[in-house]
């Protein structure tokens, strides 16, 4: 149980980072931390004690496999996370070029 709680604490740490930091890059890092905590959590869901990697072999012996579905989900989610991060960083460096700063308090053209 404690490992699941650790995942949740990591998630909250990331969320704190997103909400409290003023630097664009640090906000992106916060989002990544949240993301990775969920990946960890999902990989843990599929874990079974003494299970082996779910690869079918020819020998035909009855092994206990860990659940492969959460692993597939995590892999897909990592790909999506890569796209999100690339997009965020691309926007962040373009913002830096326009405003000459990473500080969110100074990037405030839109209001109301």
């Amino acid at each position: 149980m404690i490992v699941y709680l650790m995942c949740f604490i990591l998630f909250l740490t990331g969320m704190y980072g997103v909400l409290s930091q003023r630097n664009l890059i640090k906000i992106v890092i916060g989002l990544s931390v949240m993301e990775i905590s969920i990946f960890l959590f999902m990989a843990l869901i599929g874990y079974i004690d003494a299970g082996v990697a779910p690869i079918v072999t020819q020998t035909g012996e009855q092994l206990i496999y860990v659940d492969p579905l959460p692993q597939a989900m995590v892999l897909t989610a990592i790909v999506i996370g890569l796209a999100t991060n690339a997009m965020l960083l691309a926007i962040a460096i373009r913002l830096y070029k326009k405003y000459k700063t990473f500080d969110v308090r100074k990037i405030n053209q839109l209001k109301g």
Partner: peptide
């Protein structure tokens, strides 16, 4: 403005 709006949208949408 477009970049700022997009960044805001991405952070909230990502959460």
């Amino acid at each position: 403005t477009e970049l700022e709006a997009s960044f805001k949208y991405q952070v909230l949408g990502g959460m």
